[in-house]
Design a protein around this nucleic acid. Structure first.
Length: 711
RNA sequence: GCGCGGUUAGCUCAGUUGGUAGAGCAAUCCGUUUACACCGGAAAGGUCGUAGGUUCGAGUCCUACACCGCGCACCA
């Protein structure tokens, strides 16, 4: 018997060696695969954020995608799984800022070039770590094709997309109201905002002859328009455009009456004043009527000179002071203490978002969304689970323009010049423009970077070397996009739109969305709660095969997974069981001529058929992405049929010499078949056992053919 | 407010076209047998959130409600 088989299974010793063997043999690269493979199967790995360690969610990604790719590779496809790393713009910058903070430093005031270099070094250092952790998960991705979102070729292509979209009138420089985080000093798209329900005080203030209601009295200094519904009978005597002089926070002002049908007559008093610079709805009203807009709050969140004696006070502290003053002037009519409303906050730090009017680059989304809607409605993309399709359609139908400018250094620079005199934005990839093409004024470099999703939204075709590479021709459109359901809008939907725009093809045929990995009690993992489970601790303790089984068994797409250590431990036993069953089989079939065809007795024949039927069943389920049920069925068959029944039965037959050949042949046949079908799930232990089979001319298990089925 | 999930054994979850409820872990009892004590055998455990409806038959289909989670929304 092979010496290794005398010892108990040792996952740790095996895994590193086997992974190395796989890499050396080169089959991760589809160009090196044996046999004539015509049809390709492609998965682009969601580029991993190179700003930390692999977390449990990554563990799930690597497991599911590796199962898919190994399965298709065994089914004879040109299987490509392309790995990548993401610079992850804002996310990484936030991580790095925290690091700076710990060192008593801050990014503000730092030389941008110096900061960029520091973050780049940090990212490159991390990426080494990440890549070794991906290997640890058994990922059979093609490292020779690895891409990073800041590779010069990628950056170049992103710049070209930017220009092409500008030329096609899909990108514009707009002076619009955007969401601003005063802590991070950058603008966001609407997706980076988290709505939060809060209970606040609601103030009814006397505004001349009106009573206006507001939750933010501290923004009201500049309010000189008072708005009501044109059909509101209560205010019929006031005409649109009518001017009134009234006493306000810092003295008398002249107010103008505006009639606008967006006003809800039922709400509050049916009258409000507007702050167009710091409120989306107010901005819209001001735009409709061509009203003045004045900035009240600066980028740091402090009141500007318009606030008079309150200038320089931070917005968070201003409210009680101003309410006090309003009260002293007798302008407060009443205060509702129990006002429930939604506050928009920064998804990262929870700071209340302060809308600001700024000049930024925007993508016109409607034309892009229309094309995506058409293809999705045609059924060209399959969503797993299906309900994500509905969610996507709803989002696309109500899409708004996308602000892609970020005021951070870490990211792909926006190749543009800005004229501060007339506000013109000019695309300048070659960096040659010095004067404004419109007014001749000074043109300065745009210091902003792209929203990271602008580049990752192009990832499927960029990572394959669009437009000229043979890879792009061979592997695009890709087969499956597997990622977390939480980035369905951020990433998946934008990839569809940008992919269609640039390549005129859907970027992927299937979208497989997994749920969140939660802790054992179904709580979200977070550092502050201290319930973070490190996948590498688990793979170290129980083996990667065990971890993978734990990730996939019973884990239906789209639903979250409670990751309990017991679960993984249980599947560690399974790997051991497979190992021991193999020991038994190999020990008892030494004298069996495995090249010869054997006859089974009745019960063995039945077992042979049973397994064939199972293979047929699971093959169909694999094609339907039902890995959760396949893993469970194989687990169950191996343990409770193959080991408990077939092996136990064979002991008797072999001992008594009754139909011993039939028994031995069945043992060997079932073991080899089971190793193949188990391989995508538990690749290490199966490959290790495979290497010990007494067959001549043997391939690696990873490129063996999936068992023939009746399908 | 609108929408989407979920509610099944102590815990975590499966349950494909409607046909007598399943797995893992935990807990119970017994057992060293050609691999495996990281084992084997046995037994236990559920009025499938609630209330109606369709049906010969509903965990599964329909309606309403409750609770949990999530997403979307410019009511100041």
């Amino acid at each position: 018997m092979n010496e290794k088989l005398l010892k108990p299974y040792n996952a740790k010793d095996t895994e590193e060696r086997i992974y190395k063997l796989w890499e050396e043999r080169g089959f991760f690269n589809p160009d090196n695969l044996p046999d004539d493979r015509k049809e390709s199967f492609t998965i682009i790995m969601p580029p991993v954020n190179a700003n930390g360690s692999l977390h449990a969610g990554h563990g799930l990604v690597m497991t599911i995608e590796d199962i898919m790719i190994r399965y298709k590779r065994m089914r004879g496809y040109r299987a490509l799984w392309l790995p990548g790393l993401d610079h992850a713009g804002f996310e990484t910058q936030v991580v790095y800022e925290k690091k700076l903070e710990k060192e008593g430093r801050t990014r503000f005031g730092m030389d941008p070039k110096e900061l960029y270099k520091e973050i780049l070094d940090f990212t490159l250092e991390n990426s080494k770590n990440i890549k070794s952790q991906i290997r640890n998960m058994g990922a059979s991705c093609d490292w020779s094709r690895e891409k990073f979102t800041l590779d010069s070729g990628i950056v170049k292509s992103v710049h070209q997309t930017f220009k092409r979209m500008y030329d096609d009138d899909l990108i514009y420089r707009g002076n619009k109201i955007i969401s601003w985080c005063a802590k991070h000093q950058t603008s966001f798209s609407d997706l980076e905002i988290k709505d939060e329900e809060r209970v606040d005080q609601f103030y009814y203030l006397k505004y001349g002859p009106f009573t206006i209601a507001t939750a933010r009295p501290e923004t009201k200094f500049g309010d000189k328009y008072v708005v009501m519904h044109p059909n509101d009978k209560r205010y019929q005597k006031y005409k649109h455009g009518q001017k009134l002089t009234l006493e306000w926070i810092n003295g008398p002002i002249e107010a103008t009456v505006i009639k606008d049908s967006s006003i809800d007559m039922e709400f509050g008093t049916g009258v409000m004043t507007i702050t167009p610079w710091h409120d989306n709805a107010d901005f819209e009203i001001a735009e409709r009527h061509g009203l003045d807009k004045e900035q009240i709050i600066d980028d740091q969140g402090k009141l500007l000179s318009l606030a008079g004696e309150f200038a320089g006070v931070h917005i968070k502290k201003a409210r009680p002071l101003i309410v006090e003053k309003l009260k002293s002037k007798g302008l407060v009519e009443k205060i509702d203490e129990n006002y429930k409303h939604i506050v928009r906050t920064c998804y990262k730090c929870g700071t209340v978002i302060e809308p600001q009017i700024k000049s930024q680059w925007f993508v016109k989304m409607k034309p892009l969304a229309i094309k995506a809607l058409e293809r999705i409605n045609n059924g060209e993309i399959t969503y797993i689970p299906e309900h994500y399709k509905k969610i996507t359609l709803h989002w696309l139908e109500n899409i708004i323009d996308w602000n892609i400018s970020r005021q951070i250094v870490w990211g792909i620079p926006i190749p543009a010049k800005i004229c501060d005199e007339c506000g013109e934005g000019m695309i300048d990839i070659e960096d040659t423009i010095v004067k404004c093409t419109k007014c001749g004024g000074e043109a300065r470099k745009d210091n902003d970077t792209f929203d990271t999703w602008f580049s990752s939204g192009q990832w499927p075709f960029l990572s394959l070397g669009y437009p000229d590479s043979s890879d792009f021709k061979t592997f695009y459109p890709t087969s499956v996009m597997e990622t977390g359901g939480d980035i369905i809008f951020f990433w998946v939907s934008r990839m569809i739109m940008l992919g269609l725009y640039i390549t005129e093809k859907i970027p992927f045929k299937n979208v497989y969305l997994h749920g969140m990995v939660l802790d054992a009690k179904s709580q979200k993992m977070s550092k502050s709660k201290g319930n973070v489970i490190d996948p590498l601790v688990l793979t170290d303790k129980y083996g990667t095969d065990a971890f993978r089984m734990g990730m996939v068994v019973g884990n239906t797409p789209g639903t979250s997974l409670a990751l309990a250590e017991d679960r993984i431990r249980g599947y560690g036993k399974f790997a051991n069981k497979v190992w021991n069953a193999a020991r038994f089989v190999l020990d008892n079939t030494k004298d069996l001529n495995t090249e010869e065809i054997h006859k089974y007795d009745e019960e063995d024949k039945k077992s042979d058929e049973d397994l064939n039927n199972l293979i047929t069943e699971i093959t169909k389920e694999m094609d339907d992405f039902k890995f959760y049920i396949v893993a469970e069925k194989l687990y169950h068959y191996f343990w409770h049929t193959f080991a408990d029944i077939i092996i136990e039965r064979s002991k008797k037959k072999i001992l008594e010499g009754r139909n011993a050949d039939s028994a031995k042949a069945l043992l060997y046949s079932q073991l080899t078949t089971l190793l193949k079908v188990l391989h995508p799930f538990i690749p290490f232990v199966t490959e290790e056992i495979w290497s010990m089979l007494p067959q001549k001319e043997k391939r690696l298990l990873m490129v063996e053919k999936w068992p023939h089925t009746n399908v």
